[in-house]
Amino acid sequence: MAAPEGPETFTLLPLHLDAETKALSSPNTNLADHLDELNRFHRHIVALDTPNQNIPPPAPVNPKRSVQIGKLRESGNASFKKGAFAEAVKMYDLAIRMALDRPPWEASGLVREELSALHGNRAQAMMGQQAWPEGALDAKISTEMKRVGNVKGWWRRGQCLKEMGRLEEARDWLRQGVEFERAGPEKANLGELEALLRDVEGGLAAKAKA
């Protein structure tokens, strides 16, 4: 099994093909992860409506899914404005799930952009419910997906950390955010971030005095 294969050889693996679902399986348990992913690819390929089910290039994605995600996001935003935070979170959840379930070969830049916005919105809705840990995490994911041009994301996590009393963490986080955003396209909004940072630093100083 461990023998290396040259360019001309390969190791024959015991595979099993289900006639109905065309799902692959193998008695060899080491292959389970690979085959699971393969079957997931396969489902996406079967769902394609391109001629001959050829896999399209990554760049222009199927607009259907983007439209659906956009709709879910809009209804989430509407609920948020009405103050129905739980409802908004539900909508954002659905949208995030849809974005994650895009065919795997679609442009990752787009996926990043979408997830950043959705997680950011969900963070805001979580903050509305005072669910600080959840909000902090969503904001972190949002900034991880999009580091520059995401002042809101940095601000939200900073705010959540501050609310939880994790002032040192909040300060470090906000400093990092200011660092990233200084050269970014949202320079104009940097003031909010700096204001929060001053706030947190003030809190820390007061704590040190007490």
């Binding site: 099994m1 461990a2 190791t11 024959l12 693996l13 595979l15 093909l17 085959l35």
Partner: peptide, 19 residues
């Protein structure tokens, strides 16, 4: 080992009626 290559080539050599 290049497992995914092995899977692909095994599939090419698979006898579907038996498998």
């Amino acid at each position: 080992q290049h497992v995914t290559r092995n899977i692909y080539l095994s599939l090419l050599h698979l006898d579907p009626e038996a498998a």
